[in-house]
Computed example of a mutant assay.
Amino acid sequence: MTDLVVVSLEAWDDVWRRNQHLVAGLLRGDPTLRVLFVEPPADPTHDLRSRRRPSFGRGIREIPDVAPGRLFTVRPVKWLPRRVDPGADARLARAVMRAAASVGMRAPVLWINDPSAATLADRSGWPMLYDITDDWLTADRSTGERERVAANEARLLTTAREVVVCSTELERRKGAHRPVVLIPNAVDVDAYRRPVSRPGDLPHGPVALYLGTAHPDRIDVDLCEATARALGDVGTLVLVGPNLLSAEHVRRLSDAGAVMLGPRRRDDVVGYLQHADVLIVPHVVTSFTDSLDPIKLYEYQAVGRPVVSTPVAGFRDADDPRITIADHEAFVAAVVAAVPASTWLPVGAERPVPDWSERVVAMGEVLLRLGQSD
């Protein structure tokens, strides 16, 4: 395998997620590999409806700091909603195929993380891997969007030569339809255990910190608000990561005393985790969150800090005495009791934690089978 097209649910940016860790690891391990990383399409019509400045996509760009001359990204454009333009997915598929051809890819392997790329799989005929990291069939979406996702996923599960899932729950759900390969998430263990300085924008005094995207599908805003108010003069609730909450939710959290710092580069988040007194997971518990394998589980474990989590997948099953599981009613008191912690990294951070290098090897084996399947 020398060429790979990855259709991702996230952009290639400074906040690294599963796809970026795996792709970067594969590129390091195979000097012949080239990757076209397809970001979610720009949607200027939706931007305008949401009163945001419209974005208009991005042409092919190289990511030289990861793999000079071997890693490219592209962001196509979806000009109109699918309900207005039934040919939107076909146009997006053609745009990706043109981008692949423009960087010299003639018969790449296709790695799909975004189920809306089912049309690309059909039209390209490229050998295809479907990588499932979320069960979007159980997310809070409109009926029309759920039906579209269900139709796309059914096509992908039928036509994919390999299906990878990231959690045991996804293995149970999707494995009922066909064979799947379980490749969970992980962390760069060495990087997270190398002591770094306290970030300058971290509030003084004890800190209860959440790392991750603040998204209504995952985070319990009421619980965060109650936690911030209960901490009061004892400490500060800090949220680090992309913010996808509504303006009203942000106002409520700010009024309660929470500090939302926004996204931080992948190398910088380590300092926030290491210098937090307690790490928290104020997630809703739903069928959707039960499908996840939270990367923050591995990140939290790597730094060895105390953790308080609602009973969500991953955390509730972890055999780790540093993790306290608390339901909605007990969560706030558990966080207040854990602040401040008495020790700091690296004390207590010696327990084994899965490293991304292990997952790269596993994904490489799947892709190798796929590349040899013709």
Rank of each mutant, 00 (worst) to 15 (best):
M1F: 10
S8E: 08
D13W: 09
W16S: 02
R17C: 00
H21G: 05
H21E: 13
A24L: 05
G25D: 09
R28E: 14
G29P: 07
D30R: 13
P31V: 08
R34G: 12
E39I: 02
A42V: 08
P44Q: 09
R49E: 12
R49M: 06
R49K: 03
R58H: 10
G69V: 03
R70D: 01
R70G: 01
R75E: 09
P76L: 05
W79E: 08
R82P: 09
V84F: 14
D85F: 04
A88Y: 07
R91N: 05
A93W: 10
R94N: 10
A101Q: 13
S102T: 14
N113F: 05
D114S: 07
P127S: 04
Y130I: 00
D131W: 02
I132L: 00
D134K: 01
D135T: 03
D140L: 00
S142N: 01
T143C: 00
A150K: 11
A151Q: 04
N152L: 00
V163A: 04
V164D: 03
C166T: 15
E169N: 02
E171I: 01
R173K: 05
K174D: 00
G175Y: 08
H177S: 03
P179L: 02
V180H: 03
I183G: 01
D190T: 14
R193D: 00
R193E: 03
R193C: 04
P195D: 00
S197D: 10
H204T: 08
P206N: 02
V207G: 04
L209C: 10
L211K: 04
G212Q: 07
A214P: 07
D217N: 06
I219Q: 01
D222C: 04
E225W: 12
G232I: 09
G235S: 11
G235H: 13
G235L: 08
V238L: 04
V240M: 15
P242R: 15
L245P: 14
R251W: 14
D255G: 14
G262V: 14
P263L: 15
P263F: 15
V270L: 10
Y272T: 12
L273W: 13
L273K: 07
H275A: 07
A276W: 14
V278K: 08
V284M: 13
V285T: 14
F288I: 05
T289W: 14
S291R: 11
L297F: 12
E299S: 02
V303F: 11
P306Y: 14
V307D: 08
S309Y: 13
V312P: 10
G314L: 12
R316F: 09
R322K: 12
D327Q: 12
E329Y: 10
A330I: 08
V332K: 05
V332I: 06
A333Y: 11
A338D: 07
S342H: 11
S342D: 15
W344V: 08
W344I: 01
V347F: 09
V347P: 02
P352Q: 07
E358H: 12
R359K: 13
R359F: 11
V361Y: 04
G364D: 11
L367E: 04
D374Q: 01
